[in-house]
Design a protein around this nucleic acid. Structure first.
Length: 731
RNA sequence: GCUGCUGUAGCUCAGUCGGUAGAGUGCGUCCUUGGUAAGGACGAGGUCAUGGGUUCGAAUCCCAUCAGCAGCUCCA
């Protein structure tokens, strides 16, 4: 007999081989039917395994997970991934299984399968899954040692599983499998007791993926689905997704005429329409004021810079693929540049030219004015490159500015600096261009031309901590000003195993320790992400979710001990010697494009008064009141408000409806009565009719709300920044 | 960039078996002159993303290109 302690403290006696299901049954049949899994000592476990296998603790501290618990839903979703895999294996030949974890409310499974699965196939897969659920066979767990497991997976023709056991699971002596009817899968579990519990599921979409997330590995087909214990919950979830799509900034951006993207202008190049531009300008004014208060100085830099500048900074080789190609003073430059790349042994996207191709290149270069005799046609690749480099250097090469830091570094350097001048804080709304992969572009959230609310701080090593702290404070201040409080801070650090980072380990250690310390002191919860740092230093990023739950980086603060070295930045210390400053990169908004894009979704297009592009609309009751309406609008405009009048010959109801649909914060209804008393009937978008008040009272009310930057947010987003990202039930 | 899907009026979409286009909304004009979420009539608008091919005939079938969407990968 074993003793089991339930969450209410009661202790019950059971047979030695009792399972959580047996315990549930001991309480009631209904409970047993609803039990999907169990939790012992913080770990989710199978409800159908003997408790003695699961823990040495006595009495066994057991918590049952029923169909009402969110943790149970995750277990069921993973079981659903197995059910889907089983259905697909019944319908297709030669299905290779990869991984099938749970991610939030969804699950997926990656398949190695020659036949492409398309949306049209979903109904038949779902039908097969329904059959499996109806059959309601149990999930059975068994274990094998390494050699047996490898042999077993080989016999099943599951080579990806074999590979994973050999490489990824090299330290596992014993491995578990789950069987469900004819379907067996290497899996850590846990699972629901039987397939019959997966009552409501839906296949959502199919997409490409790669084995172990590496593009150089074979590509797989990933099928996504979602599942709930209850059909109503599933329907509610699908409804929620549809609702979320309505606040998509791309949808609202076009409906509210905030921005547009035109293929002839270029992919990822955002055109700010007047209303979007008004929001942006308001935010820029807001932060400019704050920067002045905090001792920042404005600067401006041009949109291009010589390639040598980025060679000095170290950016050029690192980000070659995500920059627009250099602009050359002479058109031959492009050719020479390409030629050099072809001869570069590290460049695998282009091949060295054969003799005939090389002759053509040389002819072209000669036409363009280079001396062909210089070129060692029969020489080594290195000799050739040396000559080509010389040619390349004979002319100017410019880069469309991919970042502002090198420009600001040169501005720091332009003036002799004393320790008394530090910190120097140079701020600029810097427009930069990055050739992001076409598949990455997303409305305003990921673009190829963006304006950072950038600044670079140059300070003494002693000042770093305080400056970093103040900068974090600024980011928090900015986010709070717009009511964006649902964010997550990510500390991106160096991956010790990688060689892409510049600077000594000591500097990195030092910088990361400082960041950690200040973040902790600021009371900010943060998660550390090794390998996510910039090549020049660690950073603290503020992450926010969009309407569909995808995470985006907004504000960022980055520590940099490397660029000052590369640019040999100095200041004169107290000791009259030259010292090296430390650089802090920071952008509280991140970029204006992404920030405004996120704000559109955050407010679902309904901006608070201080940000709304159209703050007030005056609605005359009929044409008889048009003149008074125009007069009211003029007076409000003089008070600094963005006002329009609706002079359509439509009924008041229709005008109100239009204004509500356009998400205008305040409507002022004016008719003969108001005109007579110099009054307005105020209607708030959220609170509705507020009644008639004198013009002066209304102006005072609106002015207060605007100046206080009051946030009135009605509909919150479905996705929270702290939501669990992924639950891996796979090994 | 990769995998899959999509592209018809400003927007949301319909268009059957291949027979050269339709709705709602928005827009314009006129009527209507009103009191807190849709008054009525008429009208304008499309080289069916672009370029090829198959066919007597293509929005519809095939190929390519471009763009968009989802995911993957990437993100200074």
């Amino acid at each position: 007999m074993i003793e089991v302690q339930l969450p209410d403290g009661n202790i019950v006696q059971h047979e030695d081989n009792a399972t959580a299901l047996d315990v549930a049954k001991g309480i009631s049949e209904g409970l047993a039917r609803a039990t999907a899994a169990a939790v012992i000592d913080g770990t989710t476990v199978d409800a159908m395994r003997p408790l003695t296998e699961l823990t040495d603790l006595r009495p066994v501290p057991l918590q049952l997970l029923t169909t009402r618990d969110p943790e149970a839903a995750a277990v069921m979703r993973h079981s659903c991934a197995h059910i889907m895999a089983r259905a697909i294996m019944r319908l297709y030949e030669g299905v290779g299984l990869a991984f099938g974890p749970v991610k939030g409310n969804t699950f997926y499974y990656d398949f190695d399968l020659a036949t492409p699965i398309s949306e049209d196939d979903f109904p038949k897969i779902e039908a097969e899954m329904k059959k499996i659920v109806k059959e309601g066979e149990p999930f059975e767990r068994f274990t094998m040692n390494r050699e047996e497991s490898i042999q077993f997976c080989e016999d099943l023709n599951q080579e990806l599983k074999v590979e994973h056991i050999k490489s990824g699971l090299a330290d596992h002596e014993s491995l578990s499998f789950y069987r469900q009817g004819e379907f067996v899968d290497l899996c850590r579990g846990p699972h629901i007791p039987h397939a019959g519990m997966a009552k409501a599921f839906k296949i959502l979409n199919v997409a490409g993926s790669h084995w172990k997330g590496d593009v150089s590995n074979r590509s797989l087909q990933r099928v996504y689905g979602t599942a709930f214990f209850d059909k109503k919950e599933l329907a509610a979830y699908m409804e929620q997704i549809e609702e979320a799509k309505k606040r998509d900034h791309r949808v609202l951006g076009s409906r509210l005429q905030l921005f547009t993207i035109n293929p002839d202008v270029g992919q990822g190049l955002c055109l700010w329409l007047p209303k979007g531009a008004t929001i942006r300008a308001t935010l820029e004014d807001f932060i400019k004021k704050e920067l002045t208060r905090r001792g920042y100085e404005p600067v401006y830099s041009p949109h291009i810079g010589r390639v040598e500048l980025y060679e000095t900074s170290g950016h050029f080789p690192y980000y070659r693929d995500s920059q627009f190609a250099p602009l050359f003073g002479h058109s031959a430059g492009q050719l020479v540049d390409y030629w050099i790349r072809c001869l570069d042994p590290d460049e695998d996207s282009v091949q060295p030219p054969d003799a005939a191709a090389e002759k053509k290149l040389l002819d072209a270069a000669m036409v363009l004015g280079f001396s062909g005799e210089e070129f060692p046609l029969s020489g080594s690749a290195d000799e050739k490159r040396a000559v080509l480099r010389k040619w390349e250097k004979q002319q100017e090469r410019y880069l469309l500015k991919p970042m502002n830091c090198p420009h600001h570094a040169q501005m720091y350097k332009a003036i002799p600096r004393s320790y008394r001048d530090l910190p120097v804080r140079l701020a600029e709304f810097g427009t930069v261009y990055r050739h992001e992969q076409s598949g990455e572009l997303n409305g305003m959230l990921r673009v190829r031309g963006l304006t950072q609310d950038d600044a670079h701080l140059f300070c003494t090593p002693e000042q770093v901590e305080q400056e970093f702290k103040d900068t974090l404070g600024l980011v928090k201040y900015v986010l709070e000003a717009v009511g964006l409080e649902d964010y997550r801070v990510q500390l991106s650090t160096k991956d010790p195993g990688s060689d892409k980072y510049v600077g000594s380990d000591e500097l990195w250690q030092n910088a990361q320790d400082t960041l950690r310390k200040v973040l902790t002191e600021a009371g900010l919860d943060f998660i550390e992400m090794p390998g996510e740092a910039a090549f020049y230093g660690p950073k603290a990023d503020f992450m926010v979710r969009d309407c569909l739950g995808r995470e985006w980086q907004l504000g960022t603060v980055q520590l940099d001990y490397n660029l000052p070295n590369r640019f040999e930045l100095e200041y004169t210390g107290k000791d009259n010697k030259q010292h090296r400053p430390v650089m802090i990169h920071r952008a509280p908004f991140g970029s204006m494009e992404r920030f405004v894009g996120m704000l559109i979704e955050h407010f679902a297009g309904a901006f608070p008064l201080w940000l709304a592009p159209e703050q007030i609309r005056v609605l005359p009751l009929s044409e008889k009141s048009d003149d008074y309406a125009k007069d009211v609008a003029t007076r409000l405009r003089q008070a600094g408000f963005r006002v329009t009048t609706d002079l359509q010959s439509a009924k008041l109801q229709a005008k109100i409806r239009d204004a509500q649909m356009d998400l205008i914060p305040y409507m002022l209804v004016v008719g003969p009565k108001e005109a007579e008393q110099n009054a307005v009937a105020v209607r708030c978008r959220i609170d509705g009719d507020l009644g008639v008040m004198s013009f002066d009272d209304a102006l005072q009310k609106l002015t207060d709300e605007r100046n206080n930057q009051t946030i009135r947010q009605v509909a919150k987003s479905t996705f929270s920044a702290v939501e669990d990202v992924a639950t891996g039930n796979e090994y």
